[in-house]
Design a protein around this nucleic acid. Sequence first.
RNA 1: UGACCCAUGGUGUAAUGGUAGCACUCCGGUUUUUGGUAUCGUCAGUCAAGGUUCGAAUCCUUGUGGGUCAACCA
Length: 559
Amino acid sequence: MSEEKKSLNFIEQIIEEDLANGLPKEKLRFRFPPEPNGYLHIGHAASICLNFGLGLKYNAPVNLRFDDTNPAKEEQEYVDAIKHDIEWLGFKWDKELYSSNYFQQLYDWTLALIKEGKAYVDNQSSEEMAIQKGTPTEVGTDSPNRNRSIEENLSLFLKMKNGEFEEGSHVLRAKIDMKHVNMHMRDPIMYRILKKEHHRTGTDWCIYPMYDWTHGESDYIEQVSHSICTLEFKSHRDLYDWYVEQVYDNSKLRPKQREFARRNLSYTVMSKRKLLQLVEEGVVSGWDDPRMPTISGLRRRGYTPMSIRNFSDISGISKRENVTDVALLEHCIKDDLNKTTPRVMAVLNPVKVVITNYPEGKEEFLDANYNDYEEGFGSRLVPFSREIYIEKEDFREEANKKFFRLKLGKEVRLKNAYIIKAESCKKDENGEVTEIHCTYDEDSKSGSGTEASKRKVKGTLHWVSISHAIKAEVRVYDRLFTDEAPDGHKDVDFKEFINPKSLQIINAFAEPSLKTAKVLDRVQFQRLGYFCVDKDSTSNKLVFNRTVPLRDSWAKQNK
RNA sequence: UGACCCAUGGUGUAAUGGUAGCACUCCGGUUUUUGGUAUCGUCAGUCAAGGUUCGAAUCCUUGUGGGUCAACCA
């Protein structure tokens, strides 16, 4: 067996290079660092799969670190949801950590920095500081407070810490270079006063470290070898390195930040802010609405962990802006579900069929495989009787040869049952077909082995016996947006592109074997698509979500 | 009027100076008791112009296009 050599992505190449340059393999360590201020989405999944995938590949630990330095936005609810999502995806973190674990260490390091004259307290307004900061094309100017004495800085910072100042009145800044070409290096803020209760440290602190001062140091404390983040942090890298340099002890490993492009998906938005807007304005029912690109939404929609991991692997990573076609995600879930789900029957848009030569009152239980092509799925008995439902679209009074379904005078096979022939139909005053009268070939029963059962007829339809069918609500989803890149238009708000028909609620009829289906159970409704049981289901009413329809080359042909 | 990053079929990626490959999408054939699946196939690409080289998607220069950077957010 020859192993195909899989090419490395650019992050793996960097790692291989570091390894080749003497970094011991045991020192490899990664982390996934979400801020607990919202729910994870498919873009985060790319980062999760990248980091945890690296952990698996190099047999290295991966920490889950909550970047919780802003108590104004963060909540325990999000911590719990994030952990659940990662576990559901099937990844195991080495340690569960919090940036807030390091508040004391960060504080101690800060004191040392002040003593070295590398940080100072500024009590100007944020407006004043913004002006002094300059612009990307103009250098900044020094704060009048930049040259306070070390003693004064120490005492001021202590007062900040002790709550003696109002929120917003003072900040601590790193003294770097107001003329630096990189704006992040122009005396960035290290600490601000926030008199808010933190979900973990309570009221222990009223000063909180900023992201930049926290992130690299946290990586350093945890001895993360490769700190992988998204492209927009590229320009933070100078600062990341500067901060780490301040505390670096050369017996230790120096973490390395590298950036990759976030994954975007067509026909949806990915920013937490916009997703939150959809939730708050009631466009969707919540973070886990099956139309949302969140992990929880995809889970509820019926996506499997495997399909999402596979999608991330297939998509790969790079440094260029991208919009991945949602068709690829859909391909991944269909591919997985095709191999794993039982086939059952349900009719979404019913029309009544009466089999006139089938005895009234008679019922039969027909053996039907859950999967005709794969072993191990087993079978169940499906009730058959004189009156059944089929899909309205599966009948036409007249049609050309390309229509393989039921038409007057022609035959079709009822899946797992008999061959029937349409004889006549009844219509209402609008000309809409309300009832189809058929006859059946008694000898054509599926699997009976008779000559008649082996007859080839072009069409096979799914159906349910009316008297035995159970009612079910089926939620059929379409894309949430009508535009490929809803937030990619400069002059149009993304909400202008909301698809008004993204949710269609249908009262369907399903075969009775589904009665015992449990929340999150996944099935294929034969000829229709993959569906899963929604959490809104009750003991007397099942609710199904359509995860994804089957490929429908007939519908395509008819467009 | 700056710095940095990026540019390969419609989409996402690979090729790391030596045959531009893979997947999705689209389209077509075969099989089929799912117009599904499977399977076979078609179409389709190196942003541009120069340069280095026996040889450039790859290295250099310039240009073009896109992105990022001025929150007491992360």
